Simulated scan of single mutants.
Amino acid sequence: MKRLKDFLGTGFYSGLSPYAPGTAGSLAALLIIFGIIYLEVYLLLLLLMILAILISFWTAPHFEEEYGKDPQRMVIDEWAGQSLTFTAITFTGNIHSDIIILLAGFILFRIFDIIKPFGINKIQNKEGTIGILGDDLLAGLYALMCLKTLIFVWPNLFGMI
Rank of each mutant, 00 (worst) to 15 (best):
Phe118Glu: 02
Thr129Gln: 05
Ile161Trp: 14
Arg73Asp: 01
Leu8Asp: 01
Leu102Asp: 02
Gly105Pro: 04
Ile55Cys: 09
Leu48Cys: 02
Ile55Tyr: 10
Ser17Arg: 06
Val75Tyr: 04
Leu108Gly: 07
Ser97Ala: 15
Lys148Leu: 09
Lys5Arg: 07
Thr59Phe: 03
Thr90Ala: 13
Ile123Arg: 01
Ile101Ala: 11
Leu108Pro: 04
His96Lys: 09
Gly93Met: 03
Gly105Ile: 04
Tyr19His: 09
Asp135Val: 15
Leu157Trp: 07
Leu47Asn: 03
Ile89Val: 15
Ile99His: 02
Leu141Thr: 11
Asp113Ile: 06
Met1Phe: 15
Gly25Arg: 00
Ala20Gln: 05
Phe86Asp: 01
Ile95Trp: 12
Phe118Asn: 07
Thr23Gln: 02
Ala139Asp: 00
Ala29Thr: 01
Leu4Pro: 03
Ile111Arg: 03
Glu64Arg: 13
Gly9Phe: 04
Ile33Val: 12
Gly134Ile: 01
Gly119Asn: 04
Ser83Pro: 02
Ser56Cys: 10
Leu16Lys: 13
Ile95His: 12
Asp70Asn: 14
Gly119Tyr: 03
Gln124Asp: 15
Lys5Trp: 06
Pro117Tyr: 03
Glu65Val: 10
Tyr13Arg: 06
Ile111Tyr: 11
Met160Leu: 09
Ile100His: 02
Pro155Ser: 13
Leu54His: 09
Leu137Pro: 00
Asn94Ala: 14
Ile100Leu: 14
Ile100Met: 10
Gly22Asp: 05
Asp6Arg: 13
Phe86Tyr: 10
Arg3Tyr: 13
Trp79His: 08
Thr87Phe: 14
Glu78His: 09
Glu64Thr: 11
Phe12Asp: 06
